[in-house]
Design a protein around this nucleic acid. Structure first.
Lengths: 129, 129
DNA sequence: CATAAGCCTTCCAGTGACTGGAGGGTCAAG
DNA sequence: CTTGACCCTCCAGTCACTGGAAGGCTTATG
């Protein structure tokens, strides 16, 4: 399988697939002409990575998850730990973003948005905090 | 005012203040010894930037907001537009993160987290999507 | 057989917003 | 005169790609 087929199969751009090889997440074979030759196992790994990345796992966590997936003697506790850590980072980000959104909503609502210079948004930014 | 005092006053690390000068957000004067000499107006700008950044505005938006703040003939509509654009990007991110969180929560809850290898998290990652 | 389109390759640079560290100058106190 | 706490600049690294240049390979057509 050539890279563009793998790209279609996994939804990952060819550039990303090459990058994942660069950082050693996959080790595809090579054809005589130098083209990458992807096995089914490479495609599975890439699909796994695509899914894990879409859930927001950092690439290094994806590497660990992939290793655990390959390890039949793994303990599910190790997987769960990674997921829980990631989940709490997401929760953290969510609460920061929610706070930002609430403040911004209030400010946007309070701003006339006309051709006059008075602006509660700028007033807020300039006020001491 | 020296950089460490400004840092204390604004909550921004000295490195960040130097960086903001590098990208021309502020133009502090220099003392004879080469040290930066911050005026009150520099400190005010930095505080403004710190607040805008804490609301998640990208640095380039901060630059625009600062310019509008300085412009007494501004239209509040221009400020509001920037804020609304930013707000919708936050809303976008929030919905992505919320979806991730919901999926992860379900998976984490379903995982035994013991010393056995069976793991619904890995099963999900390996399943077609 | 030549050529053109569409693959594939590598390598380099850029993104955003800092952050760490090396290497070195300056200043105030004892 | 030395020590410690400042300050300076410049370079490299972060994260996860992404864009682009320069060039080789493959396939179809004239």
């Amino acid at each position: 399988m050539n890279i563009s087929e793998v790209s279609k199969a996994t939804g990952l751009p060819p550039k990303t697939i090459r990058y994942y090889e660069d950082i050693n997440l996959i080790q595809p074979l090579r054809q005589a002409n130098g083209y990458r030759a992807f096995r089914d196992s490479d495609v599975h790994k890439l699909a796994f990575l695509a899914r894990a990345r879409s859930l927001g796992f950092p690439v290094e966590s994806c590497r660990s998850l992939l290793a655990l997936y390959d390890d039949e003697t793994r303990a599910s506790a190790d997987v769960k730990q990674i997921a829980k850590t990631h989940l709490s980072e997401i929760d953290q980000k969510l609460s920061e973003l929610t706070a930002m959104r609430d403040t911004l909503r209030t400010l946007v609502k309070a701003c006339a948005g006309d051709d006059r210079p008075d602006c509660p948004i700028l007033s807020d930014l300039a006020a001491p905090h």
